[in-house]
Simulated assay, not measured.
Amino acid sequence: MVQPHPENHLVARIGWLRAAVLGANDGIISTASLMLGVAAVSSTGEVVVAGLAALVAGAMSMAAGEYVSVSSQADTENADLDRERRELAENPKFEEKELAQIYVGRGVEPQLALQVARQLMAKDALGAHARDELGISEAVAANPVQAAFASAASFASGAAPPLATAAIAPRELQAALICGVSLALLAVLGAIGARAGGASMLKPALRVAFWGALAMAVTAGVGALVGRTI
């Protein structure tokens, strides 16, 4: 008899990892970019206030947006599950054959596929159909509250270092230090996200740093341009 052994699959991290990486990345880029834009024409105090406002507003916006988005996904999943539950109650034999056909399409012999479908449905009919017909499982099911908290917390944690840098940096070095710290953090974030997802770290780190640098450069340029004309 084969002894079971615990396995930790990376797909189980998809729900929180996506929200966390997106939130932290957005926190760094949007807060640093806003402060660089303000720094082009304002004092240190105004830059810090702008950064603090960006942190609070961004965290709340990320939480609300993520909650609404993932709630919509959860509503769709629940609607599909409700329909599947009704179909199982009304016509279980058809659903059994439907599940067997899915396994046949994956390469299982028809007779064996029917036996597998029958045994799985005897244990958890809805779970079997949710997983193999609808593609819904516990690992990837939408969790709005988890996604909202992860997004808000990660946005705030990403926004905090550029904000702290702006608060303690000398005025003449403020913009350069905000930019340097933010780019370093973005590269580290890209590497960590890739590592947590089991992918190579170098390419994601460079990609995240490049787009962050572009966002900060554009925002700083717009801030300087507008500041001269107002």
Rank of each mutant, 00 (worst) to 15 (best):
G27K: 02
G27S: 14
G27A: 10
I28K: 02
I28E: 01
I28D: 00
I29P: 14
I29L: 07
I29W: 12
S30V: 13
T31C: 13
T31I: 11
A32H: 07
A32D: 05
A32V: 06
A32Q: 11
S33H: 05
S33F: 13
S33Y: 03
S33C: 10
S33G: 15
S33L: 05
L34Y: 07
L34R: 10
L34C: 15
M35N: 03
M35D: 05
M35C: 08
M35Q: 09
M35I: 08
L36C: 10
L36A: 15
G37T: 12
G37L: 02
G37D: 07
V38R: 01
V38K: 12
V38D: 03
V38L: 08
A39C: 09
A39S: 15
A39E: 08
A39G: 14
A39M: 15
A39D: 10
A39R: 06
A39V: 04
A40V: 03
A40M: 01
A40G: 03
V41I: 12
V41Y: 13
S42V: 07
S42C: 13
S42E: 11
S43K: 06
S43Q: 04
T44S: 09
T44G: 05
T44K: 12
G45Y: 10
G45K: 09
G45F: 09
E46V: 07
E46N: 08
E46G: 10
V47G: 14
V47M: 12
V47I: 11
V47E: 15
V48C: 04
V48K: 14
V48W: 05
V48L: 09
V49G: 15
A50K: 05
A50S: 14
A50I: 02
G51N: 10
L52F: 09
L52M: 12
L52T: 13
A53G: 04
A53F: 08
A54V: 02
A54Q: 03
A54S: 04
A54P: 04
L55D: 01
V56Y: 14
V56R: 13
V56K: 05
A57T: 14
A57R: 11
A57G: 12
A57Y: 06
G58N: 13
G58E: 05
A59C: 15
A59T: 15
M60L: 15
M60T: 07
S61E: 01
S61A: 05
S61Q: 02
S61H: 01
S61L: 01
M62A: 12
M62E: 04
M62S: 02
A63Y: 04
A63M: 08
A63D: 03
G65W: 04
E66D: 09
E66V: 09
E66C: 15
Y67G: 10
Y67C: 11
V68R: 09
V68P: 13
V68M: 15
V68C: 08
S69F: 00
S69G: 00
V70H: 08
